[in-house]
Every structure is written in C-alpha cells, then in structure tokens.
C-alpha cells in the first residue's frame, strides 16, 4: 500500500475543471517533486490533497495511509499526519504566531521552543504573517510544521520569494523536516514539493518527479533527468 494514492482525480476551482484525471502514488519515505508550467494545476493538486475549499473534487479519490480522505475536513487530514507549507499564507490579524505554534504542537507531535533555530525569536509576539518578508514567512511556516511534525509534508514552492541569505537556512530546515535530525531525534518522512526552478533540490534531493500539464500527469521519472530536460527543452506547451 502506498502512503498516498490518488486515482483519476477531477477537481474544479473557480468554476473551471483544473485537474482532469490525476492518478499518482507516493510511497512512505519518498520525496517527490512536482514540475509543471504556470497554471497547470500544481497548487490545485496540493490544495485538493489538503482539502481547501477553493477546490472541489468532482470525481476520483485520495487515499492516505489507507484512509479515504477525499472529503475529510482539513483539520482531520492534519491530525492524520498531513502537513502543508503554503506559498502565500494569509495574514491573521490579532493572532500571535506563538499562539499558533503552541496550538499546533498540542494537536501534532512536535515541540515548541525552537524559534531560535529558525531565527524567529522576535516574531512569536507578532500577528501571523503581518508585515513578514518572503523569507520570514517561509521560516515561520517551517517552524509551524516542526511543531506539527507531520508524516507527510507538502511544500508549495519553498524557495519562492526568498533571498540568498535566507535560502541556506530554509534549505537546511526543509532537509531536517523531511529527513529528520539527530539533534531532536526526528525521523525521515515523505514529501511532495512544487518547484519551478529546482533550486530546493540542491538542499533536499528527490526520489521521483512528476510533470503536470493541462491538469494531467504526463510524465514521471528521475528528478534530475526531468529537470534537465525541462531546462533544455521547456514543457513544450508554454504558459497556459
């Protein structure tokens, strides 16, 4: 049994069919990357796996740890062990980052008090994401995921909007999140990562890659080969 199995998934967003029959699976301990041109449905796929309301599954199924989660509420998916790093999480006025980290740790398996590692000491008392820079948002997201400690983590473009100074720390923390760290005794988990540039692969590597075009998985294989091919030849479809 695969950790995550998606069968013939059709998903609508904004009244339009975005995913047109996605079938894929991801094994335990596997790190997969998802390539695809803008608008091909990469973020929609992650949103559908997490259960966000902007996506509507019209047919097909999503199974995680053998449980059908296709229509399960978001928080139950989180408690089942799915974690998500949004590309652009919303501001939450009046709610302190520290409060969210504490509640996240209570619902999950991870620990609080790790803000120093993420260079986030000065942010715990601030409203979530309000006035955060690109790098600060990613560090905050990663700190929250460490507090949750999911068994399967989805990262939507972890390197986007991050400057050169931050990319090192973020790359290291993403690596620890996926492969575990001896320091805190955490174990290796599975991951599904959207990347445009492949830059994050320098830090985490990957076992498998998928290419999503026009709402369908058109290819899978070795990440380095596929990335090389895309760099040389593009997707062959242009931006949708």
């Amino acid at each position: 049994m695969s950790l995550l199995e998606i069968k013939d998934l059709h998903v609508e967003a904004g009244g339009r069919e975005i995913l047109k029959g996605v079938t894929m699976s991801l094994e335990e301990g596997e790190t997969c990357v998802l390539f695809g041109p803008n608008g091909s449905g990469k973020s929609t796929l992650l949103s559908a796996i997490m259960g966000y309301g902007q996506t509507k599954v019209t047919s097909g199924s999503i199974t995680f740890k053998g449980v059908d989660i296709t229509y399960m509420p978001i928080d139950q998916r989180a408690k089942l062990g799915i974690g998500m790093m949004m590309q652009r999480p919303p501001n939450v006025i009046g709610v302190k980052l520290g409060t969210l980290v504490e509640v996240t740790a209570k619902n999950g398996k991870g620990k609080t008090g790790r803000e120093k590692e993420f260079n986030m000491q000065d942010f715990l008392n601030r409203d979530i994401n309000v006035g955060f820079s690109g790098g600060e948002i990613k560090r905050s997201e990663l700190m929250q995921l460490c507090a949750q400690s999911p068994d399967f983590v989805m990262l939507d473009e972890p390197e986007s909007g991050v400057d050169l100074e931050n990319i090192g720390l973020i790359g290291k923390k993403v690596h620890e999140l996926i492969y575990g760290s001896e320091a805190d005794g955490s174990k290796s988990v599975s991951a599904f990562v959207i990347t445009h540039t492949g830059q994050i692969m320098d830090y985490i590597g990957a076992h498998k890659a998928f290419v999503l075009i026009h709402g369908k998985i058109v290819r899978d294989g070795k990440p380095e080969e596929i990335l090389e091919d895309i760099k040389n030849n593009g997707y062959g479809v242009g931006d949708e």
Binding site: M50, Y52, G53, P73, I74, D75, A78, K79, G83, M84, M86, P89, P90, N91, V92, I93, G94, V95, T99, L100, V103, T104, K106, N107, G108, D127, Q144, A147, Q148
Partner: peptide, 22 residues
C-alpha cells in the same frame, strides 16, 4: 484564514474563535 489554521490541526470552531478573538 480559517483553512490556514485548520491546516495546523485546529477544528473549524477553534479556528473561527481564534480569528474572532484576534
């Protein structure tokens, strides 16, 4: 905002309360 907090394991009611309070 509600879905963001639910992603971290809060139920919908807990998320709404936290946002309203804030």
């Amino acid at each position: 905002q509600i879905e963001y907090l639910m992603t971290r394991g809060l139920t919908e009611d807990e998320a709404v309360s936290m946002i309203v309070r804030g």
